[in-house]
């Protein structure tokens, strides 16, 4: 039955894809080929929509694929399938950590993890910055050019939310303002 299958196919993605939403793409490509539910061209559209709508990308992809394959129940089941392994695994790990919170060994390990985790978030931010703020390639190879409108907007948002009274605003206010600016000035 398609609903059961959707659930388990996405539970498999949730179990084996480790990391951000982009980590799900190879698994989805494979799923499309095996099941025939969608083609690679469909997948490209799904990625584009998932990137341009609110919500974590991986979740958006599961919902989109589920809906295209079996309507609203499909969307719900694919999404539930994706998150079920996370819920199980994280609850086990979180329970374990809570039990050993006082342990010096666990504390020592996390002392090392925290700066590394911060660095990985910074690296992810840098790679988004690279794709958003500069154009690589273009007319000649190995050239890059700043996308000045994006650079200026990014700098303005950064300064506003760190050094002006506007920092009290909710982050989504900056996102909404940036969407309007992008649309009006045709970024």
């Amino acid at each position: 039955m398609i609903f059961v299958r959707l659930f388990f196919e996405f539970a498999k993605v949730g179990l084996f894809a480790v990391g951000g939403g982009l980590a799900t793409i190879p698994f989805l490509q494979d799923m499309g080929v095996r099941t025939g539910w969608f083609t690679n061209a469909d997948l490209t559209t799904m990625i584009a929509v998932s990137e341009s709508t609110p919500g974590p990308m991986g979740v958006n992809m599961a919902t989109y694929v589920g809906f295209q394959t079996a309507g609203l129940p499909g969307a719900v089941l694919a999404t539930l399938g994706l998150v079920t392994p996370s819920i199980l695994v994280i609850i086990i790990i979180a329970g374990f950590l809570q039990k050993f919170r006082q342990s010096k060994t666990v504390d020592a390990v996390f002392q090392g993890l925290r700066p590394a985790s911060t660095a990985l978030i910074a690296a992810a931010g840098l790679s988004v910055a690279l794709s958003v703020l500069v154009t690589v390639g273009g007319t000649a190879e190995h050239t890059f050019a700043f996308r000045w409108p994006a650079v200026i907007l990014c700098a303005a948002v950064f300064v506003c939310m760190r050094y002006t009274p506007l920092k009290k605003l909710h982050p989504v206010a900056f996102i909404a303002a940036a969407a309007v600016i992008g649309a009006v000035f045709q970024f």
Partner: peptide, 8 residues
């Protein structure tokens, strides 16, 4: 750990 970061 398994799963996408946002959900985890």
């Amino acid at each position: 750990t398994p799963g996408i970061i946002a959900v985890n």
